[in-house]
Amino acid sequence: MHIEITDRAVKQLKYISEQEKNSNNALRITVDSGGCHGFQYFYDLMESNSFKEDDVVFENDGVKVVVDEISLGMIKGSKIDYTEELIGSQFQVSDNPQAASGCGCGISFEIKV
């Protein structure tokens, strides 16, 4: 049950903290049903002191990523990355071992049964 946070994601989260002058930021990643492939990633910024009971926190270089247990089951082993592409710059869950296929924009995915 591990999640890797890439250097690019660390850099971007630090940048956000700097901009907002808030060193307590954490990135929450949630998986919910939706999108054209059935499941969808959601990204939220949260205060790192408002964790819930079933939250698991991953850290890299002081940057925190928070995933709840249900979502973790579907993204464990993935990388949390920050991509800058023509379609838009965004945090992204990549190399998800549980995902069978995904849609073009990388937000929706199908789960392996």
Binding site: G35, C36, C103
Partner: peptide
């Protein structure tokens, strides 16, 4: 033909 698809709605499974 049977009115079972809305081609204007957003994402759903299999929409692509």
């Amino acid at each position: 033909y049977m009115g079972g698809i809305d081609f204007r709605k957003g994402c759903y499974i299999g929409q692509e």
